[in-house]
Measured scan of single mutants.
Amino acid sequence: RPMNAFMVWAKDERKRLAQQNPDLHNAVLSKMLGKAWKELNAAEKRPFVEEAERLRVQHLRDHPNYK
């Protein structure tokens, strides 16, 4: 299953946050990521939305029978 825009963004952002906050549990990091994503405007999200769409199209090509 291809990543959605949030997952594309969160992949690198989670690493950055975890390095800055090594003692935080994953659940806390996830909440921080969700809050930060909601605060991004459409222009800030656009590159990740476009990458998610590219991944979706590639997934359809690679797995035409996937449901």
Rank of each mutant, 00 (worst) to 15 (best):
K35Q: 14
R16Y: 02
R1M: 01
M32W: 04
A36C: 01
M3N: 01
L60N: 12
K15Y: 04
R46N: 04
G34V: 15
E44N: 03
G34C: 15
D23E: 15
N21C: 10
Q58T: 11
A52N: 03
Q20H: 02
L55D: 02
N41C: 09
K15M: 02
A5D: 03
E51R: 08
M7P: 00
L55N: 06
A18Q: 12
H25D: 15
A42C: 07
K35F: 11
M3Y: 05
R16V: 04
M32A: 07
L33M: 08
E51C: 07
K11I: 10
A43D: 10
K45M: 04
R14Q: 11
Y66W: 13
V57D: 12
E13N: 15
R61S: 13
V8A: 06
R16F: 12
A42H: 05
R61N: 12
A42V: 09
H25K: 12
R16A: 04
W9N: 03
E50S: 04
L55G: 05
N21T: 04
K45A: 01
L24A: 11
V57R: 12
L24Y: 04
H59P: 07
P2H: 08
E51H: 13
G34L: 14
L29Q: 04
Q58F: 03
E44A: 12
D62H: 13
A10W: 00
E51Y: 06
E39A: 12
R46A: 11
E51Q: 14
P47S: 05
V8M: 14
E50H: 09
S30F: 10
R14V: 02
L29R: 02
K11G: 05
N4A: 00
A42K: 07
D62L: 08
N41D: 14
K31R: 11
M32F: 03
P64F: 07
N65E: 13
K67W: 04
M32S: 05
K31I: 06
V28A: 15
H63N: 15
N21K: 07
M3E: 09
G34T: 15
M7L: 09
A5R: 01
Q58W: 03
M32P: 03
A5H: 01
L24Q: 06
R56V: 05
K31P: 08
W9I: 05
K45N: 04
H25E: 15
N65Y: 08
Q20K: 14
L33E: 06
V8T: 04
A52V: 02
R1L: 03
L60K: 11
R56G: 07
A10S: 08
M7Q: 15
K38T: 10
R1K: 00
E50I: 09
G34D: 14
R16P: 00
R54I: 05
A43E: 13
L17R: 03
A10V: 07
K35G: 04
L17S: 00
E50C: 07
R14N: 01
D23V: 11
P47H: 07
M32Q: 11
D12C: 02
Q58V: 06
D23Q: 12
H63G: 13
E53Q: 09
E39V: 06
A36V: 05
V28M: 13
D12H: 06
L40F: 04
A52D: 01
D12N: 11
D12G: 06
F6R: 01
P64A: 13
N65M: 08
R54C: 02
N26P: 15
K35A: 07
A18N: 15
P2N: 15
F6Y: 09
Y66F: 14
Y66I: 14
F48V: 03
K11S: 07
E13L: 03
H63D: 11
V28R: 12
V57M: 12
V28Q: 15
L17P: 00
L29K: 01
H59M: 12
D62V: 08
N41Q: 06
W37Q: 02
L33I: 03
R46Q: 12
L17H: 00
W9R: 00
R54T: 01
A27Y: 03
L60S: 13
Q20G: 07
P64E: 13
L33T: 02
A5S: 07
E44W: 04
N65Q: 09
A18G: 05
A43P: 06
W9E: 04
L40A: 02
R1A: 04
A43T: 13
K45L: 00
E39R: 08
M32G: 02
S30G: 11
Y66P: 15
E53L: 04
E53T: 07
D62P: 06
N21R: 10
K45C: 00
P64W: 09
A43Q: 05
F48E: 09
N41S: 14
L55C: 05
S30W: 14
L24F: 06
R46V: 05
V28C: 10
Q19W: 06
E53A: 10
Q19V: 11
R61C: 10
L33G: 03
K35E: 14
N65A: 12
A36M: 15
R56H: 09
L24M: 12
M3C: 03
H59R: 11
F48I: 01
F6D: 02
R1Y: 14
V28Y: 08
H59A: 13
P2E: 15
P47I: 10
A43L: 06
K67V: 12
E44S: 10
V49A: 10
V8I: 10
Q20Y: 00
H63Q: 14
K15E: 07
N41L: 06
R56D: 07
R54Q: 11
Y66C: 15
N4M: 02
D23M: 06
E44D: 12
E53M: 05
P2W: 06
W37L: 00
D12M: 08
Q20E: 12
M3A: 02
L60Q: 13
E39T: 12
E39S: 12
L29N: 02
F6E: 05
K45H: 01
L55H: 08
L40P: 03
N65C: 10
K45G: 01
L40K: 14
R61M: 13
M3T: 11
N21W: 14
K38C: 08
V28H: 14
P64V: 11
R46W: 03
F6C: 00
A27K: 13
L33R: 00
M32H: 13
A42E: 12
A36F: 04
K11C: 07
K67M: 05
R14L: 04
L29W: 01
L33C: 03
H63S: 13
W9A: 01
R56M: 08
N26M: 10
L55T: 06
Q20I: 05
E53W: 03
E13M: 09
S30T: 13
Q19F: 03
Y66G: 15
M7K: 15
V49K: 06
H59G: 13
L55K: 11
L29C: 04
K31S: 05
P47V: 05
V49N: 08
K15W: 03
E53Y: 03
S30N: 14
P22T: 02
S30P: 06
N4Y: 00
M7V: 07
H25G: 14
L55F: 02
P47W: 02
N26C: 07
N21L: 08
H59N: 11
P2F: 07
A43G: 08
R54N: 05
R61Q: 12
Q58A: 13
L55Y: 06
L17F: 08
V49W: 09
W9K: 02
A18P: 00
R56N: 14
D62Q: 13
E51I: 05
M3D: 12
R56W: 07
V57G: 10
D62N: 10
A43W: 06
L17A: 00
F6L: 03
E51K: 11
H63Y: 15
A5P: 08
A18V: 13
N26A: 14
A43K: 09
M7Y: 12
S30K: 11
E53R: 08
R14P: 00
L60M: 11
K38M: 09
F6T: 01
K11M: 13
A36L: 11
K67E: 14
P2R: 10
K15D: 05
A52Q: 01
Y66K: 11
L17I: 10
Y66D: 15
D12K: 12
R14M: 08
H25R: 10
K38Q: 12
P64M: 13
V57S: 13
A10Y: 02
N4K: 06
K35I: 03
V49Q: 12
N65S: 14
M32T: 04
D23G: 14
F6V: 00
H59L: 08
S30A: 10
L29A: 05
R54P: 01
L60E: 14
E39I: 07
Y66L: 14
K31W: 11
E39K: 11
N4W: 04
P2A: 05
E50F: 02
L40W: 03
L33V: 05
N21Q: 09
Q20C: 07
E50P: 04
G34W: 14
L29G: 06
E44I: 09
L24W: 09
L17V: 05
V57Q: 12
L60I: 08
A42Q: 13
A52P: 01
K38A: 09
A18L: 15
A18K: 13
K11Y: 02
L55R: 09
A27H: 10
D62Y: 09
D23F: 11
K15H: 13
V8F: 11
D12F: 06
